[in-house]
Design a protein around this nucleic acid. Structure first.
Lengths: 208, 208
DNA sequence: ATTTAGTTTAACCATTTGGTCAAATTTATG
DNA sequence: CATAAATTTGACCAAATGGTTAAACTAAAT
């Protein structure tokens, strides 16, 4: 039955996402994914022949969830300050919704940078649009207009993304070391991050 | 022979560091560690009875390498601006020397946050000194003196560490997505990060 | 030279793990 | 209903993996 098939495949993907993101490619067990999906291990292999195939699908889904958004915002026609605001706001919302994806993707890419190539093939948008170069042109225009202090687009992008992602990826350290493992304090901290990061970045580049 | 013993144990630790940092706890194989150390697998178990014991030693070494430095700098008697300068400079040098440690520690801590507890026992310094609270007092003093804009110590610390660590931890993404996999461009980028991060942070909090 | 303690090895073991297969069950089709 | 096709399962397999053991080797101590 088509309906049941889709339900099963959906269950598998959900389970695989969960287990892979929590345990990583090498730590994840096919048996655990099958258990989580509430199915037999053989059925898992029936839908996705190998662990690698399943993993590729999952990391591809994770990657796809994060990158299109970046491109749309940075490529839009608004001012630099507005871009920072919209980007940080959207990105932090997205991370809050999928808190395990950034660490998962970063870790797996470190384990096997080769993955990025196949990821690019299926997310063909970044390089060819010259996105960063365009954003850099906009930046330098606003620099010349005396709106912002001199800064390079690459540094700015890395800063913004880093400020957004780091507190989540390094959650155990931030929550443990800085907040003495107090979950509430950590969550409150995250809630005020959006406003803070926007302030922090704009404050840094705004011309007095 | 004592000399040979130390040499073997040293070789094992070096090999374990390398393999664990590259493959992670779950991805690392005792056989590969033994091969890397140029010894037999049984000898590996002779020195460190289990994989867990060896792993604990390695992650403890990694953790110890990074945290004492933070404490000494942030607890010293210099101004906020000087602290930012010295900290970023020292931290980026340290990361350059051990580029795989941050990602390794972050990832393993996400896999098993429990590790942090045993890490604290052997690095007993952070919480009891009230380091962050002291730094926050210094910050608020300089805020009142009109030297810096209002900011919380926790946000500032997370920002600084994040700005330092992110480009290294997310190396495949930064190098791949932003620099089209051009190693030289990426390395040049890292070289100018020290100056840039210091500028970026101070610029953000400095009162006009 | 013999004993003793520490070191190293090859062979082995039990368990885990990714993956397979034939049979059973369910669903769609004539 | 009957047959074919797709789906699901339990049992099984080979390879990998963490760990053990008994024996061999080395170097110092008696």
């Amino acid at each position: 039955m088509v309906d049941n098939q889709e339900k099963t495949e959906e269950k598998i993907l959900k389970a695989a996402e969960e287990v892979f993101q929590k345990k990583g490619m090498t730590g994840a067990r096919m048996q655990e994914i099958a258990d989580t999906a509430g199915i037999n291990k053989a059925l898992l292999h029936y839908y996705y022949r190998t662990k690698d195939k399943l993993f590729e699908k999952v990391i591809n889904m994770a990657f796809s969830k994060f990158f299109p958004r970046v491109i749309n915002i940075m490529g839009s026609g608004i001012s630099v300050f507005e871009k920072i605001e919209v980007f940080v706001s959207n990105y932090l919302d997205l991370i809050a919704k999928h808190p395990f994806i950034p660490g998962f993707v970063i870790n797996e890419l470190n384990r096997n940078p080769q993955i990025l190539i196949s990821l690019f093939e299926k997310n063909i948008r970044l390089k060819e649009e010259g996105l960063i170069d365009k954003f850099n042109i906009q930046l330098q225009e606003e620099v010349e207009q005396g709106i912002i202090k001199p800064i390079d687009a690459r540094n700015l992008m890395v800063n913004i993304v880093g400020l957004c992602i780091f507190p989540i990826v390094a959650k155990p350290i931030v929550q443990g070391v800085i907040f003495g493992n107090d979950k509430k304090q950590y969550n409150d901290f995250l809630k005020q991050r959006k406003e803070h990061v926007i302030d922090f970045v704009i404050s840094s580049i705004k011309m007095d």
